[in-house]
């Protein structure tokens, strides 16, 4: 996995230079510390099995964090990623059910799912970039709309996914769990995307919209492109949610939206745009997962777990913001 860091920074200190080039280093450090702590409290948690479980559960959040990262690149934000994921989740579940649940129907449903995500992203891009509404409130409004749509498609949670779908997602091929193939494919995809013109242009827009416009960039189209990319990755996240939960739920993604924003910040990207990496967001999604499992393994009483998780995530956010800023100023 590679990183796109803003190319125009010149720093004297080697630490700063390193941070400027790899803004996700603090997150990586936190990740290692958390892995060690997990290992201390419960050696089993570092077993191949447990790590597979961790990836299987948090792959969805990784993808949502990546989705969010592309809009944050351009200094925008998308509070509807969770709703898009819910909508895609129920869409593919219902489609697969209607088409009999065979292998072909799964593929067709996934294709439609990606298109739904793309369409949602384009809607967001249109209202934020073309209509120039404020991103926070506009994407909140679209999230209400998408949630309504999801409720039309599947009014109550519970329709199961075809066996072939979740068996594949949770299965093992040639001794390697399926989710690791997905993770590898994701790594390659992100590497390639980081090299595209769109990624660079998004960062340029985030660095300064006016400057980007004056140097001839089609700012509106670029921002819409960012939202479209975000919608597609939210759809991919929905596939993972569906594989993990094996059922449809019109509200499944709602809680993940704010985590995706937290992951982007924790990964070293700046909410003010123009600076960041998708690698950091992926690592940060794992950090959130590891915090949750650490709180569990450390023997925290069950009703204290949410509180301790909240504190730990807040602390991690603070550390992430404080350290990554040193690479930029």
């Amino acid at each position: 996995m590679t990183s796109v860091s803003s190319p125009t920074r010149q720093d004297n200190g080697s630490f700063r230079a390193l941070l400027g080039r790899f803004p996700f280093l603090p997150a990586l450090l936190i990740l290692v510390v958390l892995l060690v702590l997990n290992g201390i409290f419960e050696p089993n948690s570092l077993s191949f099995r447990s790590l597979t479980g961790l990836v299987r559960t948090y792959l969805a959040l990784m993808l949502l964090a990546v989705a969010q990262t592309y809009v944050v690149y351009a200094a925008d934000i998308d509070l509807s990623v969770g709703a898009i994921a819910s909508l895609v989740n129920v869409t593919i579940i219902v489609l697969m059910q209607h088409m009999g649940g065979g292998g072909l129907s799964v593929l067709a449903a996934l294709g439609v799912g990606v298109l739904v995500g793309l369409a949602c992203g384009l809607v967001n891009g249109f209202v934020v970039a073309a209509l120039r509404l404020q991103a926070i409130v506009a994407t909140f409004a679209t999230s209400i709309f998408f949630t309504g749509l999801a409720l039309v498609i599947l009014p109550v949670a519970g329709m199961p996914a075809p066996t072939v779908f979740w068996r594949t997602y949770g299965g093992t091929f040639f001794g390697i769990p399926f989710v690791f193939y997905v993770a590898a494919a994701l790594a390659i995809l992100l590497y390639l995307l980081a090299r595209t013109r769109l990624a660079t242009q998004l960062l340029a827009v985030g660095d300064g919209q006016q400057a980007a416009f004056q140097s001839g960039l089609p700012v509106t189209a670029i921002r819409i492109g960012g939202y479209a990319l975000c919608g597609v990755f939210a759809a991919l996240a929905a596939f993972c949610i569906t594989g993990d939960t094996a059922s449809g739920d019109p509200l499944v993604g709602a809680k993940m939206t704010l985590f995706s924003v937290a992951a982007v910040v924790l990964g070293g990207s700046a909410l003010s745009g123009g600076f960041g990496t998708v690698a950091g967001s992926v690592i940060a999604a794992l950090i959130i997962g590891l915090i949750n499992s650490l709180v569990f393994f450390a023997g925290t009483p069950s009703h204290w777990q949410n509180f301790v998780q909240g504190l730990a995530i807040l602390a991690a956010l603070m550390v992430g913001v404080l350290v990554s800023r040193r690479g930029r100023t």
Binding site: A138, S143, I144, F145, T147, G148, L151
Partner: peptide
């Protein structure tokens, strides 16, 4: 409820 949410979201926009 679903239709209500859709109308609400669209009206907000």
């Amino acid at each position: 409820e679903s239709g209500r949410q859709m109308v609400f979201g669209a009206t907000l926009l």
